[in-house]
Write a protein that binds this DNA or RNA. Structure first.
Lengths: 213, 213
DNA sequence: TCCAGACGAAACGCAACCGTACCGTTTTTC
DNA sequence: GAAAAACGGTACGGTTGCGTTTCGTCTGGA
């Protein structure tokens, strides 16, 4: 009903960046239009949800013709999957170093939230149900939204451990799981704001005790 | 787009259980039909999501006429809100007492999951986006799905504290928040099964350390 | 210069859904 | 027995979305 067809990619047919293709008979496809459509798609999923966004509204939003859309993708599912995959991922990836693990973690979370909060959450909420029906999309979203921070968290913990600030038993995976869960819980269920007070609560009441035991 | 109108309830007009009303001119409304419609509504929200379920499919599922539906509720939003409100809440409310807080908690979570797992989660996933747009519905779902367990958790912690099994600093609210978040995270984001292994992980790796610090 | 193909815009037929209205039937009160 | 109202079923007009097609225009390679 929601996600159905087999995703047979229709890409790399006449893209501009090729230069090696033997011959492209007519006018090449405009990569800018393509990205505009994908961007608009993510906007719409975040605004009205996966189920409610229509190809007509997408065409209007992207100032594109529906023919231009269907020339590239076979339908909504394939389009959204690729939009999520090629999503803007400006991993600022700061990995702060304040000398204190507790402050590093807090700074990291604060920076993360600024990017994630309003942008990804609406997208996540709009796509939650579709995720339940498509394991690939689910995995994709999970990686896009949360898994990227996993490595960074591990780095923070490893550094603090080697500094002797955390015991060797400190479990970075557990930290990642618990912190991510708390944020998700607040975002989707309670709806309370994700602010410094909340992050301080997460760090001091949950993360630090768990790592220090 | 999703939740719109003012919920002016059209109920208690000619319900059967009254007996005090001065006169009811014609055939009274059938309470059984009403409940059948509400049950079918929750089923559909869980199956296809709030946005995708149609009044036609609801009528078919409940073996009811659309007139019968619109005679009671003005639209989808009002109907779903009341369905959630009057949802079947067979709070088994066991509150096990094994003598050990750790085992009590594990038993409580195991029992809870059996009820919640497949039933509420699909409902939650189907209604996530609508929740973001309607704070009342959000609050309602939050209470229905999670808040009921809050009191029980507090009781478990209080008992263990008075027994001297947990320190006085043990924070039942924190326990409730963290455990609920971990379960939600697994249900909506990772999609991994909620089994005994997972619950043991939650209890031993997160809950107990947090309460014992 | 020519032509294939992309482009935006608009319209198409089809299906689904909405909320209402009308049937004939059933159930209750007066 | 008559009036009133609920019931299941069906149909209606209006709206929306889908995926396709057609049109005239624009663009770049041969």
């Amino acid at each position: 009903m929601v996600l159905d067809e087999t995703s047979t990619s229709t890409k790399d047919v006449g893209t501009a960046h090729a230069g090696l293709e033997p011959h492209a008979p007519g006018r090449p496809r405009d990569e800018v239009r393509e990205q505009a459509i994908l961007d608009a798609a993510l906007e719409l999923v975040a605004e009205v949800g996966y189920d409610c966004f229509s190809m007509d509204s997408l065409a209007a939003r992207a100032h594109a013709s529906k023919a231009t859309i269907y020339r590239r993708w076979s339908g909504k599912a394939e389009l959204v999957v690729e939009a999520v995959r090629r999503r803007n991922c400006d991993d600022s990836s700061i990995t702060p170093d304040t000398g204190s693990f507790r402050d590093d973690l807090l700074a990291f979370l604060t920076a993360m939230i600024k990017v994630v909060a309003e942008e990804d959450v609406a997208l996540l909420a709009g796509i939650t149900r579709a995720m339940r029906l498509d394991p690939d999309l689910s995995e994709l979203m999970r990686v896009q939204v949360f898994e990227r921070k996993h490595e960074e968290t591990s780095r923070l913990v490893a550094r603090a451990t080697s500094r002797g600030e955390l015991p060797g038993s400190a479990d970075a995976d557990l930290l990642h799981e618990v912190v991510g869960a708390l944020v998700l819980n607040r975002l989707l269920l309670t709806g309370d704001p994700i602010d410094v007070d909340f992050l301080t609560h997460v760090v001091d009441d949950v993360a630090m005790p768990l790592l220090h035991r």
